[in-house]
Structures are given as structure tokens and as C-alpha cells.
Amino acid sequence: MSMSLGRYVGRRLAITVPVLVGVTALTFSFVHLLPGDTVDALVGFRDVSPATEVAIRTEYHLDQPVWNQYLLWVRDVATLEFGESPVTGRDVTTTIGSRLPATLALGGAAWLLALAIGIPAGIVTAVKAGEPADELGRIAALAGIATPNFWLGLILLFVFSVRLGWFRVIPPDAPLASVATAKFLVLPTITLGTAATALVMRLLRSSMRRELDAPYVATARAKGLPERTVILKHVLRNALLPVVTVAGLQLAFLVDGAVVVEGIFSWPGMGRLLVRSILRRDYPLIQAIVLLIGVTIVLANLLVDIVYAILDPRIRY
């Protein structure tokens, strides 16, 4: 298996390159289709002499045709050179690098929350199908999926921060890895993780229900295996496959941040950075973030496939 898996990973990684070229070329074209360019955003409505405007356009290659701008960008990226933002004059790699830890912390916490609550809750509701616990889970999941992020975030903020005063409204002046920051992250994590938790739970419940009716479960029970072993060793292992897919893809979305939640909790993450760079037509920054997201999604997909192979030995590549 290791041989074939190794070859499979190699082949998949090779496909990554054209995928990323496609993704970045598409973003590049779409962003350039938006009305206005960086210089318009920079100049605003100021009275700037045409010569100055031309000079700035030339400096950032904005006078070139779009395809040539893209090729210039690819040439730089091939040497891991992402350039500097024409808007802030700051290095793009540093800008993204400074956001990544905060983005991963919030996204990672929400992801762990989704698994830590979604999986046990999924098991319990599957096993106790039709009982009050299952009904309660169904209602909670429905509410969790149907509640919009911004609403949940504002309500949590109002109740737990403003009324009860338990949490700060804005991030504390403390390093990322500190008790104060961890405490602050409680509300944003719940806000961001609720929908994913509900999704994992419902997904696991339905796939477990399918497995519970399978003949091998009856066989296992007939063998006299304890119910706990039947559920956790046999059923759960088989039922986890769809959850792995979802969890893996969610992992990919960790890096793109969460615009709404970051906005409400003033969290300095990638989502706000991306939105602002689009509003300001900050092309180098947009491109670098999109590339990063593309890479993560490709890698996360790969990871999902590998975990599949481990969970289900019948899957061969």
C-alpha cells in the first residue's frame, strides 16, 4: 500500500501546479474586471497631475496588459517573491505572515470545538435515535445551522461581554499564546464553530444510522460483543468517512479566515485583510492570499484522501 500511496501523493502534488495556475489566473482576471484599479484607489479624488499618475501606474506595472501583469507576477512568485503592497508599501509576505497565527488560532479553536462536541453528540443522537436526546440534538443542530454568524456573535457579545462583563469586547493587549487571549477567544470560537459543530453532528448521526442497520453490526452483536465495542470500534470507524471529508475541507478554510466573526470581535485575521485588499484593489496582496488559500485546499484534499485510505483499507489508489 505504501508504494501505491506514495505514487498517488506524488501524482496529486504534480496536479497541484496547474490547479494553482488556474485559480490564480482566474482571480487575477476577475479582480481586474472590477471597476477601478490600485491607482484610482490611491489617488481618490485628489487632483493629481497626469504625469504622476502615469509614473505610479508604471511603477506597479499597471500600464501593462493584464496577461503580462499576470506573467510578471508568476515570474516573481516562482522565486517566492510576493512583492510589496502599493497601498501600504509593506511587504506582502510579512503582512500575511503576521495574520496567519491569529487566523489559525481562531479557526483551529473553532475546528476543535466542532469535532469535540460534534462527534460525541453525533454518536449519542445516533444510538438514541427517536428518544428525547435525539430530538433535542435535532433541534439544537437545526438552530445551530440556521443561526447567522453575525447575529449569534452580537448576541453573545451583548449578553456575556456588555451585560455580564465576563469577556472583553476587543482582543486584550497580550500575546496570542496567553491566558487572556485564550479567554477572549471563547466567544468568537463559539460563534465561528457552532454551525460546523451542528453539521458534524448531523452528518455523523445519519451515517451511523446507516451503519447500525448493516448486517455486520447484527453479527457483532450476535457474537456477544459489548455494545460499547460494537459502536465505537465497528460502527464509528465506518461511519467516520463522511465526517473526515467535511472536517478535512473545513481545515482548508482555516486560513481564509472568517470575515464576519473577525469583524465583530475585532480579530486581526486573514478575512478582514482579504476583504480590505479587494476594496482597495491591492492586487499583490489579493493574489498572495488567494494562492495561499488555493494551496491549503489542495493539501487538505490530499490529506482527506490519505486518511480515507487509513480508515478504510479497501480504498486503494
Binding site: S161, V169, I170, G263, S266, P268, R272
Partner: peptide
């Protein structure tokens, strides 16, 4: 730096 209007109000209130 707080971009959300409601969060600015909440932060001042708290």
C-alpha cells in the same frame, strides 16, 4: 482598530 459599529458601541459600554 474596530471596524464593526456595534462592537465599537459594546467596547465603550464594557
Amino acid at each position: 482598530i474596530i471596524t464593526e459599529q456595534s462592537s465599537r458601541q459594546a467596547a465603550l459600554e464594557r
